[in-house]
Write a protein that binds this DNA or RNA. Structure first.
Lengths: 141, 141
DNA sequence: TAGATACTTGACTATTTTAGTCAGGTTTAT
DNA sequence: ATAAACCTGACTAAAATAGTCAAGTATCTA
């Protein structure tokens, strides 16, 4: 299973974007300053987010990024997927000698990892960017 | 977050042990063969499991390992804990300049990681070794 | 009591992944 | 023009991972 800085940064940056995404695009430089994430690293991340059409870029002076969908429609799953964070707990290749073959006790745990994956994925599928921003401003009251 | 081979192997090996844990202790050699896990690596893992009193060792010929508790009482949390697999999604140090300070937008995501951790931990706390073995033999019918 | 089996411990290491950096662009508003 | 900002690919130091290796110790069985 993976869930590292890249995925976290992506979520943080997008939450920031969702928040300041009024009229003008938000520059990575601003996000970098506010979130304390390296600009170069952000560029890598946003390149992936753009390819998956989660954000849209606007080049040139006063340029930046805007969300490509409503915050409500951007689920965390989509974000992790875009930056190659995968919730993968086990690989159980049918062909491999070391994999499970349906007979061995290996499969005792096979179902477990499946369940776990679903459990985690469900969590991410339910959560949208909007939830993050909303939840936080409520607490702020 | 971490969830790597070590944790998986620990669970696989213990599931195997739970299954073959009738009267005689189970040798790591047997587990190694059945599960396709390096014997040396298993030894590392079982050393940790023993220190946390999840298993008990019996030395000498015909020796091996036995569960130290009932399978029902061994939760996956205990296992991961023993082998240093930790579900840790984010570190947000109050002091650090890069950490969240309660004012910045960084905390937009802070709660999220907390929730996620709980979500995953709950899963592990509910599952016991018995569940694994039981679940599997049911499917076998 | 010899020998085999199996646990015990600690050090070592190749490989992979992570978390970036760096350099050199291109685009566009002003 | 020029500065702001996006864009891309190559590179790399450090950490984590997944083991291996070596040298034991304990205990059962013949």
């Amino acid at each position: 299973m993976k869930l590292t800085s890249k995925g976290r940064y992506a979520v943080m940056a997008l939450a920031d974007l969702a928040r300041f995404n009024n009229v003008n695009p938000v520059s990575l430089r601003d996000i970098s300053l506010r979130q304390g994430i390296s600009l170069d690293y952000l560029e890598q991340i946003f390149s992936k987010l753009r390819k998956k059409e989660i954000v849209q870029s606007i080049r040139g002076t006063q340029g930046g990024y805007v969300l490509n969908k409503k915050a409500k429609e951007i689920k965390l799953t989509n974000i992790f997927d875009a930056v190659d964070e995968k919730v993968k707990t086990v690989q159980c290749k049918k062909e491999s000698k070391k994999g499970c073959n349906g007979k061995s006790t290996k499969c005792l745990t096979h179902n477990l990892w499946d369940e776990l994956e679903n459990h985690i994925n469900n969590f991410f599928e339910e959560k949208s960017l909007e939830d993050l921003v909303k939840n936080n401003s409520e607490k702020r009251v």
